[in-house]
Design a protein around this nucleic acid. Structure first.
Lengths: 144, 144
DNA sequence: ATACGTGCAAACGTTTTGCATATCG
DNA sequence: CGATATGCAAAACGTTTGCACGTAT
């Protein structure tokens, strides 16, 4: 984890993928921006910048990056995939406000260790995990 | 949490929902079967039993049960909602085999407590959470 | 009787795909 | 030049909805 942009380019080259205009534009937007985004939001960003990239290329490129482990997907809401660049970032989990949708990232070593222990107990070789805590954030919780 | 079938029926009655044939058939299949299922699988089960229930009714009934807290949804795979009856069952999380799809349920008090602590640190009032551990199960892990 | 539920088929939003064209190496 | 990527539009997928008809209360 915690790659650099060079890692991405090297990975793509090694896999025999070509460096095309569309691909470079998309990579730039994803790894320059940061944060969570949907495919459609990414497409809007690209179009706003005057780049002319098709929806298909956005989805295809996102797929490659997910396969390479440079982007992760999350399903915060049903029916829409959220993507997040993991470039240069360490693993983290999410707290999601069920009222305003705010997303806070956190890391907790102790939880990670317990997860490993649970997996081991059940004979699993852990590959990755997803932990999401849903609740009301400090602001939205006041009214309850 | 941990309701009985009577709780479900009482809830539905109190909400003013009617007891119809389709509804009874669906409830029976969901709470009689147990386990994880998709809307389509549930529909197949119902049809296999000769019941004639429409896809629309399946989705509408599932929605009511989710609202009532008797069924929970999970997104194990992208683009498809998995449902699970929580009737008579305590909270638990999941280990998912990325090769064969096997799902193992587990409970871990220590992890739960740490989650509460994390939420508190960030000023969140926790409502629910989702923890999924992905990896290779004991059987599928041997070949690696 | 009348409000609520049903089934059907059409609509929806997201994602994937087939194919002809353009581009990279 | 040959292989791969692109853009488009159509298809696919799971899910939701409008509506005329049925049924529980």
């Amino acid at each position: 984890m915690a790659h650099t942009l060079d890692d991405v380019n090297r990975y793509l080259r090694e896999k025999g993928f070509r460096s095309t205009g569309a691909r470079r534009t998309i990579l730039e937007a994803i790894f320059g921006g940061g944060g969570h985004f949907t495919a459609e939001e990414l497409l809007d960003t690209l179009r706003g910048r005057g780049g002319k990239v098709s929806r298909a290329s956005v989805y295809r490129t996102l797929g490659m990056l997910v396969d390479g482990g440079f982007v992760e997907t999350r399903e915060f809401r049903r029916g829409q995939t959220m993507y997040e660049a993991v470039l240069g970032r360490e693993h983290h989990d999410h707290l999601i406000c069920t009222v305003c949708g705010k997303i806070i990232e956190f890391e907790n070593e102790a939880i990670e260790r317990l997860q490993d222990a649970v997996a081991r107990e059940h004979g699993f070789t852990l590959e990755h995990h997803s932990l999401r805590l849903y609740g009301r954030c400090d602001v939205c919780g006041r009214g309850s």
